[in-house]
Design a protein around this nucleic acid. Sequence first.
DNA 1: CAAAGACTTTTACACGTGTCAACACTAGGT
DNA 2: ACCTAGTGTTGACACGTGTAAAAGTCTTTG
Lengths: 345, 345
Amino acid sequence: MSKPEIHTMEELSAAIGVSRPTLSRYFQDPSKVSKSSVERIRSGLEQVDYTPNFFATRMNRKSTGMIGVIIPYLNDLFFTRLLEAIERAAMRAGYTVITQCSHADPDIEARAAETFLSMNVDGAVVAPLGNHSDLKVYERLNSRLPFVLMDSRPARLSQVDFVGTDHVQSTGIITEYLNRVGGPPVFLAMPRVNFNALEREAAYIAKMEELGHEPVIIGTEEVDAGGYFEAHGLAVLNAYFSKGEFINSSILCANDRVAIGALRAAAHHGLEPGALRQGGLRIAGHDDYPLCPFLIPTLTTVAQNVEAIGQAAIDRLIEKLRAENSQDNQTVQLMDGVLKIRESA
Amino acid sequence: MSKPEIHTMEELSAAIGVSRPTLSRYFQDPSKVSKSSVERIRSGLEQVDYTPNFFATRMNRKSTGMIGVIIPYLNDLFFTRLLEAIERAAMRAGYTVITQCSHADPDIEARAAETFLSMNVDGAVVAPLGNHSDLKVYERLNSRLPFVLMDSRPARLSQVDFVGTDHVQSTGIITEYLNRVGGPPVFLAMPRVNFNALEREAAYIAKMEELGHEPVIIGTEEVDAGGYFEAHGLAVLNAYFSKGEFINSSILCANDRVAIGALRAAAHHGLEPGALRQGGLRIAGHDDYPLCPFLIPTLTTVAQNVEAIGQAAIDRLIEKLRAENSQDNQTVQLMDGVLKIRESA
DNA sequence: CAAAGACTTTTACACGTGTCAACACTAGGT
DNA sequence: ACCTAGTGTTGACACGTGTAAAAGTCTTTG
């Protein structure tokens, strides 16, 4: 571009004849400057190429206007939906989101937390890694910042705000549904990489006992799935189907990605899971992964209210950082899951 | 934690009896400080809670060690794979990646670019939004920073480095394959939201003419798909299948997400696309979306070498920012696609 | 024992902007 | 023309760290 580059407010001040502090106030809130100055500055800015330095502006402000978010994986549409919900909510509230992905590595997660602290973010929202994460990282963030945990909750962490799905409810309704339409379901677990895996397992067991049935859990063993839940579901069920087991069962998968593998295993063995088959194979999932309506058959599942979880996490965070000194109590918000009945069960 | 918090190097200097400039050098490169001091600092740091202020450290350094990345969508596993590849490559090279998602909004994309400029990032990598993006944004970044475009390339943008897939080659080999095993394929287009959509269309047409066949393109019309490629493919093919059209054709989808919708449409009409059917319906995609091996049937496609694209983008960027003053020429790197033959075609 | 060398510390200034108190200015009313 | 109120501007200091030159200290070498 042909516009001359200007790098500091000082230069800009000299160029358009308005004092530097006035410019500073203009960039923060134009209404704090007289109309005549606003006009002069605005027309001046059209002649030159200038944007305030990001670091200098954040350095000695009380608030940086930034919220740090840590997500465990990116290659999972559930987390990307959650992230989008959070970014939208934060944007509406006027905050900038800085995202870090821990890539399933506790060291990276810890490093990201330190980065947020050194950046003086106004608050942090974290979706925990799971078993492998270092709880001290969360405690440290919680003690120094407005902090909210979401999606999955470490059992032994108290005094930390949490927003997520009520897995007792969500897993409960789908267990009940499967039991009603197809008999007592089997639970196809996923590798216990996060706390939700265990919560859903426990919720399944509780509901089954309430219904007077024996819980049956498969797939807890490690399978070489390369970190892909789909491959895990596929490998586990392939093994059982090959032996002729669970061919006519209702199978509740720990999440939709596992269920995608399960559907594939069924197809591979010529089985057609579905609600229309009387007494036959049924497969259901959990989460309402965006692809569910496009699978073959379309996947019955329980939807997590991702949008609400993201919004609530940001709402709670902002509530905390507005009332910094009030020592309010721990808040736990659990959203209900919604049954999505489709073809597969 | 019980460790006393220290907020400035000055305080730290007083606390452990080492001068502040020495501390500054220690944090940048411990080898620039004598062993005795290193030992003293290290043991001192274990007694207190201190991390250097992120903004202050970046403010008057020549290099911020940060690379800005802009991605159009998050809810697409292709882009998340690309992002992961980039993050890994950047991390290996010692750079911190700042990611911004433009959410398919050119205004957000432009704002993200300005943010990067105001942060003095060392370089920027952008996957363009597509038709709607403002080319001036890229030109501006390119004129002020080491800059690399990836994945999709605006036709009218010259003098900008690019890394992506050679769609003439990739679309060519799958067109040829389909033609060989199932007769001349139809091209199921996707909404022309990005430049790759057009490049693949053109490559398909060229290959068909080379083979002496009439190209047939469907699905260019807007369908109300809510931004989901899967829904687009489903809606378009549902309409044709209902009329009995293309029921025995080879269908090349513009990408795998469209193909997922296409598979669903086939299933909905009781059709079974697959290589094993002589002369029947075949469906293929493009990209090698991670779910391809789990679809029913598993999806034949052309794999983009995502890992290589990410690595090459970072390599090129670093090459540029190391040799800032050398006015080297534009570099365009096109990676070959690899045919992935599975069940669907 | 003195001189050279290797570090370290000190001193001083710089980065670009926020912030507040003190100041200058304009407009309105008498 | 004068005073006051109100608003806008300016000067001065602050934020936390990087950086370079000068001065200091200590160890090693002749």
